[in-house]
Design a protein around this nucleic acid. Structure first.
Length: 801
RNA sequence: GCAGAUAUGAUGGAAUGGCAGACAUGGCAGACUCAAAAUCUGCUGAUAGCAAUAUCGUGUGGGUUCAAGUCCCACUAUCUGCACCA
């Protein structure tokens, strides 16, 4: 057998798979199905990254195994192609984003095919295709009809560099998700999706799915449900209530001041009666200037201004208390106002110390002269609550009192905010809404979908945060679908996350022109059995798409309450320097180069062998050689081939053990140890000196999910059959055991010798053998044997004193 | 600050409470070669010893156990997420 020509072999089998539609999901809905989903890529101009290869290789292996196990496998791929980088390229190079997108998709497609992924290429999706975004708009209109879409003028996250409004999810850490500039707060009228309406369902649904624990936890934290109470404090000077939210109504007797957010509407409402209104407005301006960074750095250093002219009254004590404004209270959470209990809240404590406000202890257990006490304890100075020691009881009693007084009730709050759902950019789905001076906001009729993007000359957004579409009169000016009068179209587009919020549904029936997917197809394929992707999408795409899916479920459009039955995540591939791969660091590895030099099989093997699939691991140019050697040595097995269909006596146990190990490890995504066990088997075969034809075919089958090209070639050369059409192989538990086993003989937990015994020997025989051993005897000599422990087929431990 | 994860040779990493370091890289020595590369063989945690072997060894300090990398407690470091969320 000559040298392994990976270039020819890989090309040959990729062509075979394509010509034979080997990986096309069948329409035969009587077969058991398996739907494996990977996050479809954003087709950027830089081409694919080795991170993509790792992200797809996991379920690629599982899918190839599932097909051999007789499943009808749906393993689709597509392109999430709307987005700013494409638009920016279009502006910079003066090419239409449609062309940029098409070029990039072509590039990605050829790269994906070069690696030999077993995607069903007949179901490719492009979110910018009008046959696709028609349905994105359709779902949006369904939400609009059902009151989940609204417009609001509020303070929003705005990226001055990208010139767009961003959602909370897109501006985590106060940075723009696209360009990493600092976000500023801006008051603007924007579109929202009422995702908070689904907060409880999104939370409860997590209990029914098999997600990685960390994925669940991050979603729970992001939703951030808290239970507490709303309390109305009256304002002494006016017939007015100041409504606050608290998780600790039991500390109501310890309130010594109130704090409201600088943007709180109460200030505007009573501005004429507030004596220091100028001071308050100056403070508000100062706060607006602070960057997110400054705000977090100055956490301890509380600032604020007392409102001169508004005094609150404690509903349970009747005491008058001062009201402050401070930027440590956010307008976006709760009611934008708090009751401050400095004795038992660190932030309130800092504020009270700085402003010289009273600190009243209502829970015993700490030293409030030194710090706030946030633990539990007996209630004091709290009227009817005095003497209660349990926090839960105290809260209940407090709620009861508030109820009787009619000035408060139980309440729930979420950290998650409604989804800011529009961008002032060109390359996105147009929002299908018409603004009519008579009828207000009117939906574009369903039969007019898709509402196509108009052709424009200039993709630059306006400086005032206006979409490029606003400049196209022929697009903007239209008739109201309701009254027929002159009206104007909405010119904002949807955010990038829109298209990916339902793409897994389209894969089920991608060419349907009547519906986003037929009910029969959805019933058969959904839910996604296994979804793998990156941790960075857990609090964005994963939450968004679960929300859309739950909405469609409530509408009766889909048949499962959750879209994804199982979710796993791969770890990053780091650069050789251990840092995250980035162009600026110059440590990026191009998968094309690796394929050209070593072949697709070696690349696939290496990204899975380099470490735990779920953990980050640095790339190593020298380590990849190990996988290259492995592939060449597998090819070399054909030089030591002997006739015979079955397993040889020498290797039968090794094979059965390896079949078991590889089969199990694939299911638990322990690809690194699965490959290691194949390497061990290969070493054992070379030690044995020969391999039977049957063994060679078995080896190829085990290797196939990881390195399909070389496996197909060797299998075909030695059987005349196509491996991808064969079945997965099974093992016999009995044959995984050697006839004799080496067990360890310990004295007081220290290894003294090793014994070869027959498998499943009985306790007495083994202990007798151990005690007869010279080394054990000398270690035990002069001591009393207190205890003898025997773990079958593992060890003997003699405890002697 | 809160939550979670991680810590093992020179390196990436293995190890249902039961032989720590599988597998691979790198290194050293040898074979082949005029030579190099490739390939093949052997060795490769530390210390002592010619050796058999002994002792030590999984971030630090304690604990549970016949037995701990693994379980419990405290600490340190790193990474990730959230962050003045009332």
């Amino acid at each position: 057998m000559g040298k392994y020509d990976f270039r020819a072999v890989e090309k040959k089998w990729q062509k075979h798979w394509e010509d034979n539609q080997t990986f096309r999901a069948s329409d035969d809905r009587t077969k058991k199905k398996f739907y494996a989903l990977v996050e479809f890529p954003y087709p950027s101009g830089h081409g694919m990254h080795v991170g993509h290869i790792k992200a797809y290789s996991g379920l690629e292996v599982v899918s190839r195994k599932r097909r051999m196990e007789g499943y009808n496998v749906l393993f689709p791929i597509g392109f999430d192609a709307y987005g700013l980088p494409t638009e920016n390229t279009a502006i910079k190079e003066n090419i239409h984003p449609r062309i940029v997108t098409d070029n990039n998709i072509e590039k990605f497609t050829s790269q994906l095919k070069t690696v030999g992924f077993s995607f069903d290429w007949s179901r490719v999706i492009d979110t910018t295709d009008e046959n696709y975004y028609k349905w994105t708009q359709w779902i949006f209109l369904k939400m609009f009809e059902n009151g989940l879409v609204f417009r609001d003028k509020t303070s929003v996250n705005y990226c001055p560099s990208c010139k767009v409004v961003l959602s909370n999810e897109d501006s985590q850490g106060g940075k723009c998700d696209i360009c990493h500039s600092d976000i500023v707060q801006k008051t603007k009228e924007v579109w929202y999706l009422r995702i908070t309406e689904y907060a409880d369902k999104l939370l409860e649904g997590l209990e029914t799915v098999d997600y990685l624990p960390n994925v669940k936890l991050q979603q729970q934290n992001w939703i951030g449900k808290s239970t507490g109470a709303f309390v109305n404090f009256s304002i002494k000077e006016f017939d007015e209530k100041l409504r606050i939210y608290t998780t600790r109504p039991d500390t109501l007797w310890g309130v010594t001041f109130m704090v409201i957010a600088p943007e709180h509407p109460l200030i505007e409402k009573y501005r004429d009666s507030i004596k220091n209104i100028d001071e308050l407005e100056n403070y508000k301006q100062e706060c607006g200037k602070k960057s997110e960074f400054e705000r977090t750095q100055l956490v301890k250093d509380k600032t604020g201004v007392k409102i001169d002219g508004l005094t609150a009254v404690n509903p349970v004590t009747g005491k008058e208390i001062p009201v402050y404004i401070s930027d440590y209270v956010m307008m976006g959470y709760g009611t934008g106002a708090i009751m401050a209990v400095p004795a038992h809240d660190e932030r309130d404590y800092d504020f009270a110390k700085k402003f010289g406000i009273d600190i009243i202890e209502v829970i015993k257990g700490g030293d409030i002269s030194k710090a706030a006490y946030t633990g539990e304890g007996e209630l004091v100075n709290s009227g009817e609550l005095n003497g209660i020691t349990n926090k839960k009881d105290a809260i209940e009693k407090a709620l009861e009192i508030l109820g009787k007084l009619g000035c408060g009730e139980k309440g729930v709050q979420y950290k998650m905010k409604d989804w800011a759902f529009n961008r002032q950019r060109y390359w996105g789905e147009p929002i299908p809404i018409v603004h009519c001076p008579k009828c207000g906001m009117v939906a574009v009729p369903y039969d007019e979908l898709p509402l196509r993007l108009p052709e424009v000359e200039n993709f630059e957004p306006g400086t005032d945060g206006e979409s490029p579409l606003a400049k196209i009169d022929s697009f903007v000016n239209c008739k109201c679908p309701k009254c027929g009068g002159d009206a104007k179209r909405e010119t904002d587009t949807m955010p990038q996350w829109a298209g990916s919020s339902w793409y897994f549904l389209r894969y089920c029936d991608p060419h349907n022109s009547e519906r986003f997917a037929s009910k029969e197809a959805l019933e058969y394929w959904m839910p996604v059995d296994w979804y793998n992707g990156g941790m960075e999408h857990v609090t964005r795409h994963m939450i968004y798409s679960r929300f859309w899916h739950k909405f469609l479920y409530d509408m009766g459009e889909v048949n499962t309450p959750e879209p994804y039955a199982k979710r796993t995540a791969q770890g990053l591939i780091l650069g050789e320097d251990g840092e995250k791969m980035s162009k600026s660091r110059g440590n990026v590895v191009d998968p094309n180069d690796v394929v050209a030099q070593y072949g697709a099989d070696v690349l696939r093997l290496y990204v899975l062998f380099m470490g735990d699939y779920e953990k980050a691991a640095p790339w190593s140019e020298s380590s990849i050689k190990g996988c290259k050697r492995f592939a060449d040595r597998v090819w070399g097995l054909q030089d030591i081939l002997t006739d015979g269909d079955g397993y040889s006596d020498k290797l039968v146990t090794n094979f059965h053990k390896t079949i078991k190990k590889v089969s199990e490890d694939i299911e638990s995504m322990k690809f690194n140890t699965a490959i290691a066990s194949l390497m061990t088997l290969l070493n054992d075969i070379y030690s044995a000196g020969s391999i039977t034809n049957g063994e060679l075919l078995a080896f190829c089958t085990l290797l196939y999910p990881f390195a399909p090209h070389i496996s197909e070639e060797i299998y075909f050369n030695n059987s005349g059959k196509v491996l991808s059409e064969q079945s997965w192989i099974s093992y016999d538990e009995k044959l995984c055991q050697d006839e004799t086993v080496e067990i360890v003989a310990q004295v007081n937990g220290k290894v003294r010798t090793k014994l070869n015994i027959a498998v499943d020997s009985d306790r007495e025989t083994v202990i007798e053998m151990a005690m007869a051993d010279e080394k054990v005897r000398s270690a035990v000599a002069g001591k009393n044997v207190v205890k003898q422990i025997y773990v079958p087929n593992k060890l003997v431990n003699i405890v002697a004193k």
